[in-house]
Amino acid sequence: MNIGLDVGSTTAKIVLLDNNEVIRSKVVSSHNWKELLDTGMDEYNIVSTGYFRKKVPHNAAITEITAASLGVRYHIPDAQVIVDIGGQDTKVIDLLNNRFMINDKCSAGTGAFLELAAHYFNIPVESLGRLHSRTQRSAQINNTCGVFAISEMISQLVAGYTMEEVIHGIHEAFAHRIAQMIPPVEQVVLIGGTVLNTGIVDAMEIILGSTVVIPPNPQIVNALGAALYKNKSIPFKNTDILEQNPR
């Protein structure tokens, strides 16, 4: 049995894989990661990933980029670009060109931004998607800084926009921020707990103009990728890159 353990900044996930089939998965908060490990689990079988990958039991530790590439290819073998929206950063992995970008200098395109917004409205972050769907009208929110966006939200409420319209605007600002990192492709795969927010998915589809695909259980894809690592799958396109760049 192969075990993938993804302990990220906000949540910890585990996937148990037997004969390439997921037989169990679980998500808890990062600080409770120990709850994921049953007695009898052999450290030898664990491949870890995520921020805390080197702080938890493991036989091998891999970055979230490699884990995401493996996990997504399990469900979508012809994936082109993966966008992993995490609690503290967002990673864009271009599988066609073997490249990746990470946004971590600004919270505007990360889960932390949405938590900040939900905190301001005193609502659970899980309700953002539902509130987004109640309106088609958006309050325009600056998309350059997550912290300043909060003061802009307040200004828009003062100007008469509803909470739902402001949330709609937040999701669009979020999607614009991430879109700057994404190369133009036909299909984009979204993973990470944030994509459970349907408002984000709607905004991404509109702004990117690409087909947005979400694999089953997007929150555990990196843990799945870690579990697959022992199978030595090839996540990146193994071709001669000399053919791909212009001269």
């Binding site: 490699t66 950063d89 193994n238």
Partner: peptide, 17 residues
């Protein structure tokens, strides 16, 4: 640490390629 993550991921990618 964020930069270390990039270096580590790049190393993994090159090794796999």
């Amino acid at each position: 640490e964020q930069l270390k993550l990039r270096l580590e991921a790049f190393s993994e990618m090159l090794e796999i390629m």
